[in-house]
């Protein structure tokens, strides 16, 4: 009697509902598996990219060190070594039976070369670690560098350092100074720029550095990873816990922004 109360239509709707929910749940499980795999695949790719980037930075760091060593060796060999050899040659001419005039001339020449050696040694040590950087910090050293480049002519230097005399950590100051040196050097060598702007500022505990030139710029896509110079810079900044971004385009100069978190 009660059989008639359940219509075939309602049974069909129920069965359709059950099948629908089943399909939905199976689809959810499949979606989860596929989505999870895709995320892990992306993670793997990102990790590989990160590792490749770290490797590049390491290579750049080693390259920086080697370049620095080569430069010091060249400076010592060319400037100091040759002058010391010359002094030795002069001093070898000094003999007990030499005339007083000759002896006086050799002494004068030797002293002159020794003065030059002292000057060159001072220049080399100044290049390695400017006294102003050690004594007064990065901002003073950066200002000094900009002033010297500006005075040399051919390049307008705009420096803005603010009035905050707060200092960065020693290693950060040296790294930032080297970066500035490298950037200025690159601009002078390759950029054909007429103006360089350097801005240093503090934002709370964050030190901001901005470098901009109006040179010919370059296409970041054609210069692999921004070239070795920028890779060196990135390597230096990464080593002292900072972050860097840069932009450039043909005819649009170069802009580099660096942030350093100061723990002092």
């Amino acid at each position: 009697m009660e059989t008639n109360e359940i219509s075939a239509e309602s049974v069909n709707i129920l069965l359709a509902g059950i099948v629908g929910m089943l399909l939905l749940s199976v689809a959810l499980v499949v979606f989860f598996i596929v989505y999870q795999r895709r995320i892990f695949e992306q993670q793997r790719i990102r990790l590989a990219e990160e590792q490749a980037h770290q490797k590049q930075l390491l290579t750049a760091a080693v390259e920086v060190q080697e370049t620095e060593r080569r430069r010091i060796a060249r400076d010592l060999h060319d400037d100091i070594g040759s002058l010391l050899s010359a002094t030795r040659l002069y001093l070898r001419q000094l003999k007990p039976d030499s005339s007083p005039e000759k002896s006086a001339s050799i002494r004068a020449e030797s002293l002159s070369i020794l003065d030059e050696i002292i000057q060159n040694t001072r220049r080399i040590t100044h290049d390695l670690l400017p006294p102003v950087l050690e004594k007064f910090g990065y901002q003073a050293a950066a200002e000094d560098l900009c002033e010297r480049v500006g005075k040399s002519g051919g390049m307008k230097m705009i420096y803005s350092g603010g009035s905050n005399q707060r200092r960065l950590e020693d290693k950060q100051e040296i790294a930032l100074y080297r970066v500035l040196q490298e950037l200025v050097n690159n601009t002078l060598k390759h950029a054909k720029a007429s103006e360089i702007e350097v801005v240093n500022s503090w934002q709370g505990d964050l030190f901001k550095f901005r470098y901009r030139d109006d040179g010919k710029g370059f296409d970041p896509l054609t210069v692999k990873s921004g070239g070795l110079g920028l890779k060196n810079i990135e390597s230096r900044i990464t080593l002292v816990g900072g972050s860097l971004d840069w932009k450039s385009a043909p005819g649009d100069g170069l802009e580099v922004n660096i942030s350093l978190n100061n723990a002092n």
Binding site: I6, G17, L28
Partner: peptide, 21 residues
């Protein structure tokens, strides 16, 4: 769990109705 309970959800809810037949 997901497949088992999603398939059973409507069935269990309507079971007392279905038990008429």
């Amino acid at each position: 769990v997901l497949i088992y309970f999603s398939g059973n959800f409507l069935l269990w809810l309507t079971m007392n109705y279905l038990l008429k037949d």
